[in-house]
Design a protein around this nucleic acid. Structure first.
Lengths: 147, 147
DNA sequence: AAAAATATGCAAATCGTTCGCAAAAATTTG
DNA sequence: CAAATTTTTGCGAACGATTTGCATATTTTT
C-alpha cells in the first residue's frame, strides 16, 4: 500500500482525492493483514490503539469509497446481519461462509459465468455482483463426523 | 396455494406442522401476486387490511421457515439495508436490482456454474447461495440517454 | 506558525427488526 | 358445541448495527 496524501491520489478514472490519516491507515492495515473479512465490530475489537466505534464506521466507509476495501452483507446465525469488510485485492473476491464455525474461505475465482447472456436476456447493464455461498467447511464436516 | 391446517402440512422430508391463519395467508398471497420481491415495509404498506408491523415480521419469518417464501438482503441506495421477500417458486431465484429505479428483474436461470469444482477446491460443502446483481435496467438506460 | 479544512470522540439519534405481555383467534378436548 | 388449551396478534418498549451533531483534535493549506 502506498502512503496517500490529499490531492495526490487517484482511483479509477475520475480523480478522488483523499486523505490517509493514521487511524485510517491502521484500519486498512488490519484488513490487509486479515485473512478473513471482518465486521466493524471485529475491526474495533482487534484494534490495539483505541478508536471510537463511530470512527471505525466512518473510516471503513471512507476507505471503501476510496476503493481500498470492499464490503458485503452477511446474515450469520451467530452474529446476525452485519457488513463485512476486506481489502480490495487485485480482482474482486467472493467468500464461502461456514454456517458452523462462521469462518470465511476465499474463492480463487468467480464462479459466475458470463454476464453477457444475462444482459442480453434482460436488457440490464450489470455493474456489480455479490455472491454469498453458505455451507460447511472441511474442518466442521470432520468435527461433526467425529462426534 | 393450498389451504394449510395444523398437523396436516409437511414440507421437505421432515414434517413441519404449521398453521395458516388469515393474516399469514394474506401475506403469502401478496407475495405471490407481486412480481417484485418486497421488503417488510412494502408488504406492510401494500396490505389493505390492517396488520401490525410486528405481525408482518413474524408472519414473514414463519412463512420462510415453512418454506413458502424466501428472502435475501439488499443494500439499496434509496432504501438502505433491508430484507426482501418473494414466494419460493418451483426453483430458487436470483434478481437483478436496478440502482436507478430500484426495481427488481428476475433471472430465468441461475448463472452459477457447477459448485462441485468449488467444493473440491475448498473442501466446503455448499448448502445455499445468494447472488445479487446490481446494474441499470433497460428503461433507466433509455431514460438517461434521453436526457 | 497561523488559518482553514477535515477527522475524531462522545453521546444521542436512527432504522430495521425483535421481544414481552395481555388480549384475540384458532385448535383441541370432553 | 362449549370449555380448556395453544398459538397468534397488537402494542409499546427494547435491541443491535450504523449514523449523526457537535465540540475538540489533527491534518493540510497558506
Amino acid at each position: 500500500m502506498q502512503i496517500v496524501r490529499k490531492n495526490l491520489t487517484f482511483q479509477l478514472d475520475k480523480p478522488i482525492l483523499y486523505m490517509m490519516t493514521k487511524k485510517r491507515r491502521r484500519l486498512l492495515e488490519l484488513l490487509q493483514e486479515s485473512v478473513q473479512p471482518l465486521s466493524a465490530q471485529q475491526v474495533y475489537e482487534q484494534m490495539e490503539e483505541s478508536l471510537d466505534m463511530a470512527t471505525v464506521y466512518r473510516g471503513l466507509k471512507y476507505l471503501e469509497e476510496a476503493g481500498e476495501i470492499s464490503s458485503f452483507l452477511l446474515d450469520c446465525s451467530e452474529r446476525g446481519v452485519e457488513r463485512y469488510y476486506s481489502q480490495s485485492s487485485s480482482c474482486h473476491r467472493h467468500f464461502l461462509h461456514c454456517v458452523s464455525c462462521h469462518s470465511f474461505t476465499s474463492l480463487n475465482e468467480c464462479p459466475l459465468g458470463s454476464l453477457e447472456k444475462i444482459e442480453k436476456e434482460t436488457g440490464f447493464r450489470v455493474e456489480e455482483h455479490y455472491l454469498t455461498l453458505k455451507g460447511t467447511c472441511e474442518k466442521c464436516q470432520i468435527n461433526v463426523r467425529g462426534k
